[in-house]
Amino acid sequence: MATLFTKIVNGEIPSYKVAETKDFYAFLDINPNSKGHTLCIPKKEVDKIFDLDESTYTALMQFSRHVAIALEKAVSCERVGISVIGLEVPHAHVHLIPLHTMENARFTHKEKLKPEEFEAIASKIGSFLNIT
């Protein structure tokens, strides 16, 4: 059965898309730790990040780096943190989290944003990207 993230990639579930290539997809977390919290995923459905083949893993990290650089330009923060946890959805994914304090990295405080805020953030991050 397709994961939630595969359904997002396939357009069955809406998302606030930040970036897309033929192999990867980045979108805003709808329950963000901070404004701009972005998820980067391989389109290929693999449960655990370290089960990805080496070339896909490396390419996912490169894709995530490009998104993180754009994210830091688009959203004011001290830095962009990275987290790979993967317990909530059985599909490999990288969290890119704009950090203001260490609390943003702890997954204990969540931001509440309106749809138009999500749309504006996704668009702004995407405007700083140049990936194919």
Rank of each mutant, 00 (worst) to 15 (best):
A2I: 12
S76Y: 09
L39W: 06
S64V: 06
A26K: 07
N104G: 11
F50D: 08
M1C: 14
I49S: 04
N10E: 12
F27A: 07
T38N: 06
S123T: 13
G86A: 13
T132C: 06
T38A: 08
I97M: 12
P32S: 00
D29C: 06
E45M: 10
E54P: 04
L87F: 15
F118W: 04
A70V: 05
T101F: 09
V75M: 05
N104C: 14
E117C: 10
N104D: 15
F128M: 04
M61R: 01
P98F: 02
I82N: 07
S76K: 15
M61K: 03
I69F: 04
N31K: 13
F107M: 15
K114N: 05
A74F: 02
N130T: 09
H93F: 08
A2D: 15
V9Y: 00
Q62S: 14
G81Y: 03
G11L: 13
K112D: 10
P98V: 09
K44M: 04
H100K: 15
L28T: 08
K7D: 01
T6D: 03
I8R: 14
I41M: 06
Q62V: 14
K7H: 02
L96S: 04
E111N: 12
N33Q: 13
K17Q: 00
I125F: 02
L96R: 05
S15E: 02
V9K: 06
I125R: 05
N31H: 12
L39Q: 10
A105D: 10
H109E: 14
R65I: 05
E103M: 14
A92Y: 00
S83T: 13
R106I: 03
A68N: 00
L129R: 08
A26T: 08
T58R: 10
G36V: 06
K7F: 00
K48D: 14
K124D: 01
V67H: 02
N31V: 07
L52S: 06
V94E: 00
H37I: 03
F24T: 08
E119R: 15
T108D: 09
K43S: 02
E12H: 12
E111L: 11
M61W: 00
P90C: 10
K22P: 01
R79I: 07
P14F: 04
C40W: 00
H93I: 11
H95L: 11
C40T: 11
N31A: 11
I97R: 12
A19E: 00
T132N: 14
I69A: 07
T6A: 14
M1A: 15
K73P: 04
H95D: 06
N130P: 01
T6I: 12
E88I: 13
V67E: 00
T101P: 12
A68S: 11
R79V: 07
F5A: 13
V46M: 03
V84N: 10
D29E: 01
A105V: 10
F107E: 08
K110P: 03
A59R: 13
E45H: 05
L39A: 12
S55G: 03
I41A: 09
A2P: 15
Y16C: 03
A59D: 11
D53E: 14
M102C: 12
I13M: 08
A105C: 11
F24G: 09
I97F: 09
E20W: 02
H93Y: 07
A70D: 00
V18L: 02
G86C: 12
M1W: 10
A120Q: 13
F27C: 07
L99M: 15
C40N: 02
H109F: 11
K35D: 07
K124G: 00
